[in-house]
Design a binder for these strands. Structure first.
Lengths: 240, 240
DNA sequence: GAAACGACCCGTACGCCGTACGGAGCGACG
DNA sequence: CGTCGCTCCGTACGGCGTACGGGTCGTTTC
């Protein structure tokens, strides 16, 4: 087909790039405002003022769009160069930055990946992390394991954060709709608490119901766990 | 039609229980075999040999069904009593058990929660964890933080595992469909590697493409990171 | 026995969704 | 001028969750 199409056209070739970016940005905005489940191709097209199928000119499928949206979030995870020379401080900054990005776009935490393709901003994020590991001076595999461990912790924390945010939002919506904000405890759980099994869970619920008016887990502490993990890594890579 | 129905009971309160459980089990089976996106109320009903709307007699909505499915997985996270007396060993066992359950049912990792309701098996899991923290002898808040940190790490790790499993499955499907199993690297990433930015990412890709025929991240190491985290916790709760 | 009452089951229908497909407008090129 | 490619878009198909109303049948109440 395209025997001779690739290298040409100085002026007119780039009408698509801006639009692709615009589509992704509009989708991110929509997801931020109304949640990822509100992002449908129809609503997105409507918001952009184009026909239903027009976005498909620029993205191959919705799955690819989601992936591009995640990569847009990955852009926010990048730490401004130069990174701190101390590996521990560098890892900490990357982790904190990542958490902030995830907190700002909770839908990105668990959106399904499209394929194995690593996009540009995620690749840059990996590059930053890899550059830190390099300065570690430890075995290559240990460095990779350390990176994985920190990443796992950060992502897991963000999952909890997202669940919390969702509960709060749902509760607000329920209150706005006029429902009672009762804890809606599961009858089986209630019975188990009554029976003496789940003694500790019962105490936990009671304490929560008493303190504060929203019976919800407190904002989890990110940095404490992160420091623990970094402590553990330090004893391996730089035992004193 | 139904030769076999619920046993006649003087208290007519509980005819639903068996069927509710059967629905959840069938849904879990379906999700295990074909992934969570294959679980639709129609397919589930078909598999159960009932009408499309019949499952709604037992579950309030699909969201509640998903929550019940997750709780079914939570059942597998329970460690047989009695727990080890050593807090560290107990936490380790709970973590490993949790990871195993998640690995067996990867869809459970990121399924959306329905609401704030804690179901019975998850409550039992929390009770187990709380009982370990009790023996820690440390400040209550530190115990909770330790629990959260371990949980975060485990969940994050399972997220990565799920992504990996998905990539492998997709690649298998692509090969079976006759597509070429090329890495399908993003052009922008390729250009950045070429240009010298992303030097380390380039080396990483090259190393992967060379070793093994599937260019994929190696199975991540769960226990190393877990031990690091436990090390860090130990220095706080039981400084030596 | 009759009637009323649930609990359970189910078919239809509505409004969403992702997207395959074919066609229209239009600038660039031969 | 014709042709080609890209952008844009309307229509349509199959699938989804589920509201709703009606059917069946065992149990309860007179």
């Amino acid at each position: 087909m395209q025997v001779e199409r690739a290298p040409q056209e100085p002026p007119p070739l780039k009408p698509a790039a801006t639009s692709r970016q615009a589509i992704v940005e509009a989708a991110v905005e929509l997801a931020d405002q109304e949640g990822i489940e509100a992002v449908s191709m129809r609503r997105l097209a409507e918001r952009l003022g184009v026909g239903t199928m027009t976005p498909y000119t620029y993205v191959e499928s919705k799955a690819e769009l989601i992936e591009l949206m995640r990569d847009e979030v990955a852009r926010a995870m990048l730490v401004p160069e130069p990174l701190p020379g101390d590996w521990r401080e560098a890892l900490r900054q990357i982790a904190i930055r990542t958490r902030e990005a995830m907190e700002a776009h909770p839908w990105a935490v668990s959106a399904r990946p499209h394929g194995a393709r690593v996009r540009i901003n995620l690749a840059r994020h990996i590059e930053q992390s890899a550059s830190v590991v390099e300065t570690l001076g430890a075995d290559h595999e240990i460095g990779a394991a350390a990176l994985s461990a920190v990443d796992d912790y950060v992502i897991g924390h963000c999952m909890r954060l997202r669940a919390r945010q969702r509960v709060i939002r749902d509760r607000r919506a329920a209150v706005a709709a006029g429902a009672q904000p009762g804890p809606a405890i599961d009858p089986a759980v209630e019975a188990a608490i009554e029976s003496g099994e789940l003694r500790r869970v019962g105490r936990l619920f009671a304490a929560r119901a008493q303190s504060g008016r929203l019976a919800i887990a407190p904002e989890p502490d990110f940095e404490t766990g992160l420091e623990w993990l970094l402590d553990g890594i330090e004893t391996t890579v730089a035992p004193r």
